[in-house]
Every structure is written in C-alpha cells, then in structure tokens.
Write a protein that binds this DNA or RNA. Sequence first.
DNA 1: ATCACGTTTCGATTATGCCGAACACGGTTC
DNA 2: GAACCGTGTTCGGCATAATCGAAACGTGAT
Lengths: 253, 253
Amino acid sequence: MIQSVERAALILRVLGAGVPRLGVTEISERVGLAKPTVHGLLRTLERHELVVQDAETGKYALGPAVLQLGNAYLDGSELRARSLLWADSLAQRANESVWVATLSGSRVIVLHHVFRPDDMVQILEVGAAIPWHACALGHAIAAYHPRIEELYEEPLVQLTGQTRTDREQLEEALTAVRRTGMAVEDQEAALGDAGIAAPVFTRGGVVAGAIGVVGPAERLLGVRRNDLLLAVRESGRALSRDLGAPRSTSAYG
Amino acid sequence: MIQSVERAALILRVLGAGVPRLGVTEISERVGLAKPTVHGLLRTLERHELVVQDAETGKYALGPAVLQLGNAYLDGSELRARSLLWADSLAQRANESVWVATLSGSRVIVLHHVFRPDDMVQILEVGAAIPWHACALGHAIAAYHPRIEELYEEPLVQLTGQTRTDREQLEEALTAVRRTGMAVEDQEAALGDAGIAAPVFTRGGVVAGAIGVVGPAERLLGVRRNDLLLAVRESGRALSRDLGAPRSTSAYG
DNA sequence: ATCACGTTTCGATTATGCCGAACACGGTTC
DNA sequence: GAACCGTGTTCGGCATAATCGAAACGTGAT
C-alpha cells in the first residue's frame, strides 16, 4: 500500500536472493525503478543497517540488522518455542535429523533443526528457504493451506530430476497428503535426501507449519519407513495439541 | 531520508526489541505516529511477510521473511565465510566455545558460533545481540572503531554487577585493548561467563569484527589464560590476513 | 452494557518522494 | 595523456503520495 515501503521491501528481497552484493544500477534494473530512487531507498535502509555498502566497490548487501531481526523472530515464534521438546524427542526416537518449518510466501522456512543424534558435524539449516513444492514439509503445509492458489504464483523450479513441477501431479500429491495426513518426498529437493513430514495446526485448526525428518533416502524410505511415519505423525499431533489446535482437525479424521 | 521507509524500519526495530507481539496502538505510542499511519505501514510490511498479524489477538509480530533475510545475510557475509575454518581450529586448540561477531549500531551481533568440543548440547547463539560495552568481542571492535562517539549514543545498561557502565572506565579498557591488541571481559555480560577476544581487520585496515572464546570465568581466566590469549590473538591475525588486511595494522604494532 | 482495540472512512494539507538530467570519480583504452 | 566508458551520487522542480485528526464501525473481552 505505502509505495516507498513496498519498494524498500522489494529491494531487501532482491538483495536476499542469490547474488549477495549488488550495485545501485543492478538493483534499479531488477526492481524497475530510477537509479536515484533506489539510491534514496538504499541510503535510508543503510541508516538502520538493514543494508551496508561495501566501502571499496560501492555495492550494497544486506546488513547485520536483518540478522538481529531474524533472531528476534525466532525468539518470539510460538511454533518454534513449543516445538523444541517435541523435535528433540522425535530426533531421539527416529535417530534422524528433525526440521520444523513454516511457510513464507511460496517457500518453506526452517525454524528449528535438531541434528541427527549420531552425526557430529552438520550444517545448521535454520533460516533456510526451500520451495514448497520440493519438500515433504512444504507438501504437508500446502495440503491444508486456505489459499492454495497463492502457492502457484511463483514458477515451480526444478531442483532435481525427481522434482514434480507439474501442477496436476502436485495436486495429486496434496490429495494424498490430505488422505493420509502425512507427506513423503523422495529426492525432490536434493539428490539422495528424502523427507517425511506431518502438518502442525494451531488454534482454529489452521496450519501453522510442519514437522518432519530429513535424511538419506535409503535410510528413511527403507524398512523403517512405517516406523518413521508413525513417529512423525505422533509428533505432529502432539505439537498441534500444544499449540491449542482443536481435537479433531481436518487432518485427524 | 525517505520518511515512510524510515518509519517502517523503526517499527521493525520496535517489534524486534523485547516484547514479541504488539498492537497497533502500542506501536503507534512507541514510535510517536498516528494510528492510521502505523496501520498502513504494518499492512505494507505484512504483504511481504516482514510482519505477521495474529489472527486472534490482532497484534503484530515479526514475520518469517526477516528470518529468511537474516539467513541470506549470513550466506553473503565474507567475515563469516572466512572465519569458519579459523573458528574451528581455535575451538579445537582452546577447547572452548568460539564466537565471531560484528558490530551493528551499538550492539555486537554473533555471526558464527562453534560449540566447545566437549559439551554436547548448547544453545546456538548466532544472531544474538549483545551490548558492545559488556563483552570482550565488543571491546575488541570498539577499540578500533573509527567513530567511537556513536557507541555512546545509546545508554550503557548494566547487565551484571560487574558491568562497567562508566564512560571513563570503558575508555580505559579500550586503551588497554589498543595497547595489547586483546580484550578480556570477566562476567560483565553474564554471571560466571568470561570472554577473550581479538579484533579482526579487513582491507584498508578497518575493523570488520572480532573473534574470541567464551566460557566459565574460572576456566578462561585461570592458569590457561595466557595460552588462550595467544591462541585467540593468532586466530584474529590469521583471519585478518585472510580478509586482506595490510600486514601491520594499528593493532599489530 | 461497557470498554478497548483494530480497522476504516474522509478530506485537507503539504510535505514528500519521484524522476530526468547533470555531476564526480575510477577505471580502461587508445 | 586524453578520451571514454561505467559507476555511485547530487540537484531541482513537479506532481503525487503520504500523513493526520477525528470520528465511527465491528468485535471481542470484561
């Protein structure tokens, strides 16, 4: 609604997508605004350290303040707070990495990440953004999303050879999710990795996010598949109950 | 410069400080603007999911997009990228938790956190913001900050009984840092915890941040103190060299 | 029934943000 | 060394776009 804020947000998004450092000219091309306009917006954002300018190249990048805000968001997130315990116990029971995520636009944002108990060194994925159509967490959320149309506004990119980018196929998958209350993904986001996820509901029975396990496909989808499905489903239900979801939600039929 | 963006940034900061959820009225009081004005700004921020509105209470909170941006900032941070290896080796050598941080406003933001090799479960502190005057990392940066005055603009809060909030005392501490090239802090941020840090410089010899160890005071400041000082100093120098700092910076005299 | 809150409306006022063109600086090329 | 890109930056006038106050609406909670 408010034009300049809209544009500032657009600039932040552009700076957050892919190329970490961009010049004024590059930005003004991507957002379709005059150079001086972009310059003014950047200077304002710079004041608050939402962006910083490289002293040498003159190019702009996101600033440390956005990290601080991200941390504040995590601190205040009820889904994350309530998921800490359940995610831990799921990781123990499944002996796999556990992710808790929510939807932002058409991407799934990882809110919490518990490492697989066995492995020592792993990369912390909190804050990572994954296209919704390429992961089990995304399917679990999308299946109960009140305005599914919005999810198809962005193009469905192909991440691996297995990624389903066809709308019909995706709708089929979502119907399956609604039937079973669970989502399973096999190497659609990254080769070798699979995921099993369950939706998480909050007060009013609306989806707040999803919880699930992530790991090598052969380990998740082999003989332990049914055990894992059960464990993830129970975690999802427990977490939903914690958040105040009504006893029987559409997924718990 | 651009008023509405300035105000939007202010709102984000207010939402990121302490109370996680605020109503329109509360926000308009804190930023000193008319209610409809704040409402318009919020609605615009909401479009981009920089803030979200709680469906039940109507109150506003930071949105998932800020987390995504924070993650993008980390991905693009050169200081963080180059620090990964050095921080790991410092953690091994010192057998303590290692933090890498940079300055944002008058707060120190943790960019990277390596857990102490022995301990298993620790809280990941990436994104945490600490007042500069209360930690070794902050002192290490402040001592070489080109515009120190800016650091005294915010009030110097007292976090523990040991926190130095007197400007003269702080100046003394900074002089000591400049002399030795190292900063040491003893329970000024949290009771029981101490820190040892060294500044990190980048091209042109300007400070980019700091690296250091954090842990129980008796373990850091006891018999191992000199060993740790040496280890941290060398990590700081190595990291600075990686970032392209000139051979002899003001701190390396 | 009352209160408080978020939301919406309205019109008037003007400050505000916008763009085109011009500027200054650093490279490179001839 | 001079001409020449391509930067990021500045300027000024025009028209839009944002702000505000007050009041009223709907909705929950008390």
